[in-house]
Design a protein around this nucleic acid. Structure first.
Length: 511
RNA sequence: CGGGGUGUAGCUCAGCCUGGUAGAGCGCUUCGUUCGGGACGAAGAGGCCGCAGGUUCAAAUCCUGUCACCCCGACCA
């Protein structure tokens, strides 16, 4: 057992922090609520960006960049929007520091209008779209941006909720309501497919209740995942903003009917919170477990030797193995690039930048095992003198901690790719099984309370109502996570109020 | 912003009650023995004891103020 990581059973939130620390994903910053994303954590974010960005482009979107600072007046233009974000805005009020009479630096040069550090960019983007859109011929506008945003949170947790976070926000404007609605659902589907295929996290697509929707949206959709402690986590959102922002920012165009009309807009986003989801969905008491598609290192090769002769023999075998997995040319390029460095990163996939790594550091093999295990590397290969003599190597799987002896000749790029795909599927299946086992149907409020205490999703009929939802949250800490899209038409008796037209919803305690 | 707590080495903490000028474990550096799942020995480096005042011959220790962080609540991707 890992000695630097608390077990999930002992203390789940400490486990989560320990996994992040052991995997060197992130660190606390000098500013409360902010975090430093370390190279190993950022590599995961880059994988997320890479996969999502490709999907955005494939669905016709382009990237752009809008500024960090937003005039305070913009925020107040959409009534719901201000109300939702006012409490967590960071505000820039001064433009410089000056030495005061006491010799200390103090803010000076007060701004005429305070600037808000973007908590999200609907307002600036709405302002710009108003200028860019004149005619139905200018629509649709399909723009995404990768950036940071700031929400001054009271309580923060690495990745899950930080004051500053990285995300992606797509903002589109359309000619018709139907088109905007289609876009909203299409992007939700992109998120679902991405979460399940790339992150191996099964998610439920659903609609948010009035109480839970985005400030300023007509309808908010989300994908909801279930974490290993039985709590739900919203993993991505897609909003149909109707004409709310178009009206607030005057996004108007001359339609095919020769009449001025307001555009229909959407916005959708996922954030670095996904890294938190990844950790809580898959990792175990030994540390991080990364799905192969986002693992920066797919396999770590650990040479084992005692004598100089053995080292020579084993080192050669390691290089040969790397060549079989990645190609001779890549091994040579890596050696040229990294020279005598102790960690030799050989590109396994140049498109994604994922590598096979030879760990030549002067450490005991056991230490190396733990090192790569805690970083979530899908496979480790042990290669020692006995293996070289026997013509094989030992493959260790991160997911189930199993190991197998593999004939040296078997190893190839296709072989490893197949192994990685197999792991990717197994991780998804494992998470799906967990969710299936932790999704229960409640026929009464009493039953729901008992089920919620066990964790997981509770499915039931519920008649939407803000005050009832607040009461349930008070009593059970749970909220309506979503109204799943695939059962959106079903109606039944509300298990709390008895109203006949309850919708089928999913309750859970959430992050 | 309300309730509770803590600030001493990179990390976890002891020392404070009963003032006498700094400790342990882990980590780090060097050397040697080790090396198929977290080794051992030896030698080292590292701290104006959160900050500012005060009491005192003398303050990590007592007093006052202040700042920061952590935990629990209301808000949230």
């Amino acid at each position: 057992m890992a000695k630097n990581i608390k077990t999930r059973a002992e203390d789940y939130s400490q486990w989560y922090l320990d996994v992040i620390k052991a995997g060197q994903l992130a660190d606390y910053s000098p500013v409360r609520g902010c975090m430093v994303i370390r190279p190993d954590g950022f590599a995961v974010w880059e994988a997320i960006q890479r996969e999502l960005d490709r999907r955005f482009k494939e669905t016709g979107h382009v990237n752009a960049y809008f500024p960090l600072l937003i005039p305070q007046s913009f925020l107040t233009k959409e009534a719901q929007h201000v109300e939702g974000f006012a409490m967590e805005c960071a505000i820039v009020t001064h433009s410089k520091l000056e030495k005061g009479p006491d010799g200390k630096l103090a803010p000076a040069g007060e701004l005429e209008e305070p600037l808000i550090i973007r908590p999200t960019s609907e307002t600036v983007i709405g302002h710009m779209y108003a200028q860019w859109v004149q005619s139905y011929r200018d629509l649709p506008v399909l723009i995404n941006q990768w950036c940071n945003v700031m929400r001054w949170e009271m309580r923060t947790r690495l990745f899950l909720r930080t004051a500053e976070f990285l995300w992606q926000e797509g903002h589109t404007a359309h000619e018709t309501e139907q088109e905007a609605q289609q876009e909203t659902l299409a992007m939700l589907e992109v998120y679902r497919e991405f979460a399940e295929d790339v992150l191996a996290i099964p998610v439920i697509k659903g609609r948010k209740t009035e109480a839970e929707k985005f400030p300023g949206a007509v309808t908010t959709y989300a994908i909801e995942g279930l974490m290993q402690d039985g709590k739900a986590l919203q993993c991505g959102t897609s909003h149909n903003l109707g004409q709310n922002f178009a009206k607030a920012f005057e996004i108007k165009f001359l339609g095919r009917d020769q009449k001025q009309q307001h555009a229909w807009t959407t916005s959708w986003g996922v954030s670095t919170r996904l890294i938190g989801a990844l950790i809580m969905a898959h990792s175990d008491d030994d540390g991080l477990v990364l799905p192969p598609r986002v693992a920066p290192v797919v396999t770590a090769i650990i040479p084992i030797f005692k004598t100089d002769d053995e080292q020579k023999k084993v080192s050669e075998a390691c290089l040969k193995l790397a060549a079989q997995l990645c190609g001779e040319a890549e091994v040579q390029a890596a050696q040229k690039r990294q020279g005598g460095r102790e960690l030799l990163n050989v590109f396994f996939d140049k498109q994604t930048g994922q590598t096979v790594l030879i760990d030549r550091r002067d450490m005991r093999p056991g230490d190396k095992q733990y090192y790569w295990e805690q970083r979530g590397v899908p496979f480790r290969i042990e290669l020692g003198p006995r293996d070289v003599d026997a013509g094989n190597f030992v493959l260790k799987r991160r997911l189930d901690r199993g190991k197998e002896v593999v004939q040296f000749g078997t190893a190839s790029q296709q072989w490893l790719r197949a192994k990685l795909d197999e792991t990717q599927k197994a991780m998804y299946q494992k998470a799906l099984d967990y969710r299936t086992q932790n999704t229960r149907d409640a026929g009464s409020y009493e039953e729901m309370k008992q089920m919620l205490a066990q964790g997981g999703f509770v499915r039931c009929f519920f008649k939407q109502d803000k005050s009832t939802e607040a009461r349930i949250k008070e009593e059970t800490k749970a909220t309506v996570r979503c109204i799943p899209l695939d059962t959106d038409v079903e109606r039944g008796k509300c298990i709390v109020t008895g109203a006949p037209d309850g919708q089928r919803v999913l309750f859970a305690v959430a992050y």
